[in-house]
Nucleic acid binder design. Structure first.
Length: 296
DNA sequence: TTCCAGGACGACA
DNA sequence: TGTCGTCATGGA
């Protein structure tokens, strides 16, 4: 059977659409209850499709590769990757228990039960987060779409084209003027190209970040030009599902706390306020941001 | 017109 | 070390 069982509770649809807020997204698609993304499988760009075949309390997905069912063997090989993408190791029950005495947050976890921090590849996440610095989400999506369409590799299957996010080697050689023509600011263009070049030169080790504690990972990432604390925390949350990475300076997080707790807090005070969620700040941010959605 | 969006950098005191 | 101006764009 090509089914992968997941840890409950898991709301597949809610968790997928949490990060998917644009129909123009080229690297991943969410349509008709199916999540698709390009992966490299057997050294070949392949469209991975995940179908929800479970429930909130008995979650499971089936796997397709290039629009055909994966074999039992392929499913077994893909299971670690799929579990990673779907944040299967995320201890949301531990989070729910930790905030049980915090009525507003407890009510939110009840309403959004099963929401987990689904992940995207770290390099793609870092670039996406830089795209999103200071501007509206809609405009950030447009920047990413232009970047991927220009530098990414398309994979067409069954009349549908998805793109692999451009590899560091490709962006390391990109012309800043081309990014400027796509309406990237001069800073954002130089941040992305510069980080790609440092990855190529191995002076930036993104894979090693996964093994660092959150605080050390933030310190490491923010030592590179273009990565401030917000970018580091957001990257850790979306790229690694890091439960303790709270982007306290995020406009949406601040807005949600104001709505939920009636307190309008600047970043330093918010970090003090957030100590009540020690170790769960990233998951808290996820639930806070989701609470702002009209469709949730 | 001004302010604010899923900020970061560099100059300056 | 902390503050401020600047970068980019679009919507309210």
């Amino acid at each position: 059977m090509n089914t992968i069982a997941l840890r409950p509770p898991y709301d597949f649809a809610r968790s997928i659409r949490f990060w998917r807020r644009s129909t123009g997204e080229l690297c991943e698609q969410w349509a008709d209850g199916v999540y698709r993304r390009v992966i490299v499988f057997d050294a070949k760009p392949t469209v991975l499709a995940l179908h929800n075949v479970g429930t909130l309390e008995a979650p499971a997905v089936t796997v397709e590769l290039d629009e055909r069912p994966a074999t039992v063997d392929e499913t077994a090989r893909l299971a670690p990757l799929v579990r990673g993408l779907l944040a299967d190791d995320s201890d949301v029950l531990g989070f729910y228990a930790a905030v049980a005495d915090d009525p507003p947050m407890a009510a939110l976890t009840e309403r959004l039960r099963g929401l987990r921090p689904n992940r995207s590849p770290l390099w793609e996440t870092l670039c996406w987060t830089i795209c999103g610095q200071q501007i509206s989400v809609a405009f950030a999506y447009m920047l990413k779409e232009r970047l991927v369409r220009r530098y990414g590799a398309g994979v067409a299957v069954a009349g549908r084209t998805l793109y692999a996010f451009p590899a560091p080697a490709v962006l390391a050689a990109a012309d800043p003027a081309e990014l400027a023509a796509m309406q990237f600011s001069a800073n954002k263009a130089s941040f992305i190209i510069g980080l790609a070049q440092q990855l190529e030169a191995r002076t930036l080790d993104l894979e090693g970040v996964a093994s660092l504690p959150t605080n050390e990972a933030i310190t490491y990432l923010t030592s590179f030009r273009g990565i401030g604390r917000w970018t580091a925390e957001f990257t850790l949350l979306r790229g690694l599902g890091r439960a303790s990475a709270l982007p306290a300076n995020d406009a949406g997080v601040r807005q949600a706390i104001t709505a939920l707790y009636g307190q309008k807090l600047p970043e330093p005070e918010l970090r003090v306020f957030a100590q009540r969620w020690d170790g769960w700040g990233g998951i808290v941010a996820l639930y806070l941001l989701a609470s702002l959605r009209k469709d949730e």
